[in-house]
Amino acid sequence: MPESQMVLEIRNLVKSYGERLILNGISLDIHEAEVLVVIGPSGCGKSTLLRCLNGLEPINSGDIYLDGGLITGPDTDWCEIRQKIGMVFQSYELFPHLTVIDNILLGPTKVQKRKRADVIPEANNWLERVGLLDRADAYPRQLSGGQKQRVAIVRALTMQPKVMLFDEVTASLDPEMVREVLDVMLELATQGLTMVIVTHEMGFARAVADKVIFMDKGVIVESAGPEEFFDHPQSERAKRFLNIFEFTGIHRVAAG
């Protein structure tokens, strides 16, 4: 989709912790309504990439543009930028002292100064779509992991961001709860939300992605459409990585 507008543009991003190079010259475009899935072995830098996009990690060099404007300059107001880049964490991180609805309303009312009454219908609408309208007044500790993560997604969405970042959002969930969260994300994708997703769920990645990038040791090794990547990976490293998720049955030799 070359005609659609570019939301995020990453040019030569470099990030290191002391001597250790985490991201070594990442360049990437994310277009409007595009779903980009980032996969790779742990420690490849994919989570750090997301954190850099949200200004949670200072970068060493390179540029990031949001809607054509540079956001890695010296006088970037990250409080302003972060409202346009939503982020969901692996550990949900609902605020334990607030109910579900107050968790969702906190950002829009205190940061964006929108009126509570204006935001409530929007929040309720989202809650309904993720199937949690009846839990609006519950406290986080009364929710299951999957429910918490769905609330965390709604909380980020209610800020009306341009793009959403998902950092291994199903990694700490029990298997039976993974699906309910992924279903929400699939629906968001079909609605045309721009998303960058870091995940280990390969089946989901294939279903949701417009483009897959495979990272290893701080660089992008492969970048392709989902079918192409999963069916015909080009690089050795990607082939080896995808093999981890395959099992070949072992056949016991019958005794006697």
């Binding site: 949670l56 409202q83 991180e93 605020f95 980020a156």
Partner: peptide
């Protein structure tokens, strides 16, 4: 960080 990511 979550608070920061919401723009606080």
């Amino acid at each position: 960080e979550t608070g920061m990511s919401l723009g606080f």
